[in-house]
Amino acid sequence: MTAPRGPIEEQEWPAELAAHVVTPGARPRVHGYDVEGELAAGGSVTEMALLALTGELPARAALEAVDVALQFAAAVSVAEAPVHAAVLGRLSGANTGSVVSIAAIGLAEQARDALEALGDWPFALATHSNATPPDAALARDDDERAAVDRLRTLVEVTGLSVPALSRGVGRSAAITAVLVAARVRTPEALVALLVMSRLPAAVAEASCVKAGDFRSYPMNTPVFEYEARR
């Protein structure tokens, strides 16, 4: 019996899936570099991430500066929605994959939202490192200014030039500026690095919660007030 045909059968399609970054198989290469034979010796996860996302091995200064910036980014607390959501996932008995997925989705949304708030500025930095930051990129208070001062001090030690760190920007904009200076220049790449750096803390916080221990969770925080409206 002949299977019925439809529009999918009537078209010509490639038979193979294209791999652009990693060679499939037992001895993977990333953008042409042998992972197990060469990269892993003396490399780091940050180096691998930058290679994957930019297509090239980072210069030492860029690698060290990104390591610093991602450590500044990594410390997300349970006060922040992605971690809070992961905690609720764990509390509600979600399986391991789901807890991590919940955290990852929340972190990706958090990073995307923060990046969108900066408008075109991060991408303007790629060609004009002195591009004027928008108001949304500026530090909101002295604590944030102090954090960016600490970041600038550490990044200066690496030798990577990031003029934007002296423009009064806030923490999120400063971290983004360092990543852009290290040639991370697409929204997906920026968000991926931020998620990568923050995911461990978010999952670790969720792992501290006992599944089913609903009484320990502040259910009425914050307060919701229902108003019937038809």
Partner: peptide
């Protein structure tokens, strides 16, 4: 995981690691 015969690598060719110094 698709079998190797269904995936075609189109990226950079093999190259030796030469880490930039600066």
């Amino acid at each position: 995981e698709l079998p190797a015969s269904l995936v075609r690598y189109v990226g950079r060719p093999p190259r030796p690691v030469c880490r930039p110094a600066t």
